[in-house]
Amino acid sequence: MKVIFLKDVKGKGKKGEIKNVADGYARNFLFKQGLAIEATPANLKALE
């Protein structure tokens, strides 16, 4: 799953980066902790 990092995550990505991560890791950790959001077209446009 492609995500946009909202904060730096050690070993995974830095704020503003778009990367592929495992679906479960994204849903169960990154999204719940507020560290990333899904890289949807609307979210990508908002990032610009």
Rank of each mutant, 00 (worst) to 15 (best):
F29T: 11
F31E: 07
P41I: 10
I4S: 01
V9G: 01
A46E: 11
A36T: 00
L6R: 02
A26M: 08
F29V: 14
N28Y: 11
V21F: 07
F29Y: 15
K2E: 10
L47M: 13
Q33S: 09
G11P: 03
E38R: 08
V3P: 00
E17F: 03
E48G: 12
E38S: 07
L30M: 04
E48I: 13
A39I: 03
F5G: 01
I4P: 00
I4K: 03
K10T: 11
G24M: 13
K14M: 12
I4F: 06
F31H: 02
A39F: 09
G34V: 03
V3M: 03
E48T: 11
G34S: 07
V9F: 04
A36M: 01
A46L: 15
F29Q: 09
I4M: 07
G13E: 02
K7R: 14
P41Q: 11
L30T: 00
D23Y: 13
A42N: 11
K7G: 06
E48N: 11
G24E: 15
K14N: 10
A22W: 10
K19W: 08
K32E: 14
I18S: 03
L6N: 01
A22S: 15
I18G: 01
K15G: 04
G24Y: 14
A26Y: 13
N20D: 14
L44F: 04
N20T: 15
G13V: 06
I37H: 04
E17W: 04
K10A: 14
L6D: 00
V9P: 00
N43L: 06
G16M: 06
V21G: 00
L6K: 02
L6T: 07
K7N: 07
Y25T: 06
A26Q: 12
A36V: 06
D23G: 11
K19G: 07
G24W: 15
Y25L: 08
E17Q: 11
D23K: 13
L35M: 08
K15V: 10
N28M: 11
R27K: 13
E38I: 07
G34P: 00
V3A: 01
K32G: 09
T40E: 03
I37Y: 05
L30P: 02
D23I: 15
G11S: 06
K12S: 14
D23T: 13
K12L: 15
R27F: 09
L47Y: 14
A42E: 15
M1L: 15
T40F: 05
Y25R: 07
L35V: 05
A36R: 00
E48K: 10
G11E: 05
G34R: 07
K12P: 01
E38N: 04
Y25Q: 06
A22R: 12
E48M: 13
L47E: 06
D23L: 14
A22M: 11
G34Q: 09
N20W: 15
V9N: 01
A39P: 02
G16E: 02
A22K: 12
M1P: 05
N28T: 08
V21I: 09
D8E: 08
Y25W: 10
V21W: 02
E17G: 02
V3H: 00
N28H: 12
K10D: 14
A39S: 04
A46R: 11
K19E: 04
G34L: 08
I37G: 01
A22F: 09
K15F: 05
Y25D: 08
N28F: 09
G13A: 12
E17H: 04
G16T: 02
G16Y: 08
M1G: 04
K15M: 10
V3S: 00
K12A: 15
K10W: 13
K15Y: 06
G11N: 09
N28E: 14
Y25N: 07
F31S: 03
L30D: 01
K2A: 10
L30Y: 04
K10H: 13
V3W: 01
T40D: 07
N43T: 06
V21A: 03
K14I: 12
F31M: 08
I4Y: 08
G16P: 01
M1R: 07
A26P: 01
L47N: 08
L47T: 07
I4W: 02
N43D: 06
V9Y: 04
D8I: 03
K15T: 09
V9Q: 01
G11T: 06
V9W: 04
A42K: 09
L30V: 00
G34F: 08
K10L: 13
K32V: 14
I37V: 13
D8M: 03
T40G: 04
E17D: 11
F29E: 14
K10F: 13
A39Y: 12
A42P: 09
N43A: 11
G24V: 12
K19T: 08
R27S: 07
F5R: 00
I4E: 02
N20L: 15
K7E: 11
K2G: 06
V9K: 01
A46I: 13
L47D: 04
L44K: 06
E48S: 13
F29A: 08
V21L: 05
L35P: 00
M1W: 06
L6E: 01
I18D: 01
L6Y: 01
E38L: 09
A26S: 06
V3Y: 00
K14L: 13
F29I: 15
G16Q: 02
M1F: 08
L44S: 04
L30G: 00
I37T: 06
Q33P: 01
K32A: 14
K2N: 10
V21K: 00
K19S: 08
Q33K: 13
E17T: 06
G34E: 07
G16R: 03
A22Y: 09
A22P: 15
L30H: 01
L35W: 11
T40N: 08
K15H: 07
K32Q: 11
G24N: 14
A42H: 10
V9L: 07
L35E: 03
L30W: 03
N20K: 14
K7V: 15
P41G: 08
V9M: 03
I18R: 02
K45G: 08
K15I: 10
R27Q: 11
L6W: 01
A36L: 02
D8F: 06
K12M: 15
L47Q: 08
L30S: 00
V3R: 00
K2Y: 15
K15N: 05
R27D: 05
K12V: 15
G13P: 00
L44D: 04
G34A: 08
F5I: 01
A36Q: 00
K19A: 10
I4V: 08
E38T: 05
E38W: 06
G16K: 02
V3F: 00
G13T: 03
E17A: 05
N28Q: 10
A42F: 06
A42D: 14
A46Y: 12
